[in-house]
Computed example of a mutant assay.
Amino acid sequence: MSEPQPKKPGFPIGLTVATGISFAILCGLGGWQMQRLHWKEDLLARVEKLKTAPAVPLASVLTATAKPEALAWERVSVDCAEVPGEALPLAYGVRDGDMVWRAQSACGIQAGGYDLILVDRGVVPGLTGQVQAPAKAFAGPRQVIGVLTPIQQMGGDRAQVFARYPGRKPAPLVLMAERETPAPAEITPAPLPAEISNRHLEYALTWFGLAVTLLFIYAAMLWRRLRP
């Protein structure tokens, strides 16, 4: 009497579905990084062009219909009106690998329906490396030339300082000071970022590489399972 033959494994439906879903996710992440690559290349080209662009009056670009993202890295000039109130706290930051504290002040404006804009005046070199910054007050800005950055891209609690000015209409932007007249003591202008990294192609190739690797692993497992 012949011995019963071992049952041949069936097609791994569950493994195939899981592999397909994982492959789609990895390809989707790679495609997203490619989209980010095109966006970053456009941004870098815009920043490079604006490096030599002359400053224009803030009121000419900050209109009621202008979107904050469209004004990123626009170089502007503004005469600041005094904004009553206590000095704003220093903002934590990292520059060239060091912990720094950045001075920030409110600037009174009349542009695009806004009457206030936050000015990042630069780093306070004497506080570099300190874990906690002491309370420090500076005279308010007067004439400022700098570049605009959407406040949402700054992170942290930058936008929360506007709670100190109830009833005001702050612009959703930060003016990163390049030069002030008169120049404030103890502050070194340092517009952010010092460099803009662009590694999205590297990230995309990593995700696509993982997707291809997954297919090879799946094919090897399938061949081992179904081979005679």
Rank of each mutant, 00 (worst) to 15 (best):
R227I: 11
Q152T: 13
P228E: 05
G10C: 02
P182G: 12
G146S: 06
L62P: 03
I117T: 04
R75D: 11
M221E: 15
R199K: 10
K67Y: 12
M176L: 09
P141R: 12
D115Q: 02
P6C: 05
P170L: 02
W32T: 08
P172T: 12
G146M: 06
T149K: 06
W207G: 11
A103W: 12
Q104P: 05
E3K: 14
Q130F: 07
A139E: 13
I117R: 04
P228L: 08
L175Q: 07
G10M: 03
L26G: 03
R102K: 12
R36G: 00
A70N: 12
P12D: 11
V124H: 03
I217D: 03
Q5A: 14
V124A: 04
M154C: 00
P184F: 05
G85P: 06
L50M: 11
A24H: 15
L50Q: 10
E180H: 14
L127A: 01
K7P: 01
H38E: 06
A211C: 04
V147Y: 13
E48P: 00
T149S: 06
M1E: 11
V76S: 07
E69L: 03
A137S: 15
L15S: 13
L148F: 00
L58I: 06
D157A: 14
G209P: 01
C107A: 09
R158M: 15
A64Q: 11
R179K: 13
A66S: 08
G126A: 13
S197T: 08
L214Y: 10
K8I: 06
L215P: 10
P228G: 05
G30A: 01
T128F: 01
I109V: 15
S60A: 00
T128E: 04
L37P: 00
T188Y: 10
V78D: 00
E202W: 12
R95C: 15
M99G: 14
I187V: 09
L58W: 04
D98W: 09
Y165T: 07
L58R: 02
K49I: 11
T52C: 08
A91K: 13
G108K: 02
T181S: 15
S60Q: 11
I217A: 11
V76D: 03
P54G: 14
Y92H: 14
Q104A: 08
P191Y: 12
G155Y: 06
V144D: 13
P125Q: 03
V212N: 01
I109E: 05
W73I: 00
A135S: 10
K169Q: 09
E186M: 07
V47W: 00
L210N: 11
M221W: 10
A139D: 12
E195Q: 06
